[in-house]
Write a protein that binds this DNA or RNA. Structure first.
Lengths: 147, 147
DNA sequence: TTCATATAGGACTAATTTAGTCCTTGACTA
DNA sequence: TAGTCAAGGACTAAATTAGTCCTATATGAA
């Protein structure tokens, strides 16, 4: 389990959409706002669309928007769309990498770790992130005001 | 945080040494027993030696052995020697990868995940693994006996 | 004392994965 | 019907991982 840049991009992107619901927002705008390479982001949004997390609209004034409320979308979901599942160690997923499947004492540790991570990611929704962002942004403002 | 093959090898290697304390065991034997490429394992053992987890002895009848009791060595320690620390997302370690350090709402999630993982890995020692191995090996034996 | 058996260490290479780009096609709408 | 957008496939570049290889050095035993 390691967050790829792609996943990072995807999360920021969905966060942006979550903060601008009901509008269709195009790739260029998101890429500029969140500092993500445009063409790469386009690819990521394709995946999110296929997965049903966002819906797309072509043509002018087209773009993307969320299909669900931010509170209904977890970090885990996005993570899964991009990376395909939590994989702490190859051996846990792919038996080819472990000849000791039936009696490996280390194996269960990875499984436990995976379960823990999954729980945490499932329990964080984009509504949570939005409210945190607000608090944090406020903090930054106050800091600026002080100086 | 993703377990590299190298770390996997290291863990199996230390487990083997933990199961054969007081003897010096050489690279060749461990590599054969645990199915790890010999030259690669040699490199790994160098790291473990430098880190003070094993001590080496050159010359005939030389090899490696643990410097401490298995109960005193955690999975985390080995992990750290090989991979240098838990890094769920680059942005958590390296600011270059995140322009949003001061107000990123996703950031704290990774930190929490890292802390959780670390706890779990610290709390598993090689003594734990050895006893698990015993139980598991016994299970395999019973299965074989049945057929 | 010298030979066989080990590790130490540095410099390489091969394979795989990650992080993108580019280009053409197809949908929408003003 | 031209301009604006996404869809999709095929590529490429960069970075990381997973090793190898070769030489030097230490140790113990014949």
């Amino acid at each position: 389990m390691k967050i790829k840049r792609e996943t990072d991009h995807a999360l920021k992107c969905v966060l942006h959409l979550a903060q601008h619901q009901d509008e269709y927002i195009n790739v260029l705008e998101i890429s500029q706002q969140k500092n993500i390479p445009r063409t790469f982001l386009a690819k990521i949004l394709q995946k999110l669309t296929k997965a049903g997390i966002v819906e797309s609209h072509q043509g002018s004034h087209g773009g993307f928007k969320l299909t669900r409320q931010p509170a209904e979308i977890s970090i885990y979901e996005i993570y899964k769309v991009v990376q395909g599942g939590i994989e702490v160690n190859k051996c846990v997923i792919d038996n080819k990498f472990c000849d000791r499947i039936h009696y490996c004492s280390i194996h269960p540790v990875w499984i436990e770790v995976q379960v823990d991570i999954k729980k945490k990611l499932i329990n964080t929704s984009f509504a949570d992130l939005i409210s945190k962002e607000a608090v944090l942004a406020d903090g930054v403002q106050r800091k600026k005001a002080k100086t």
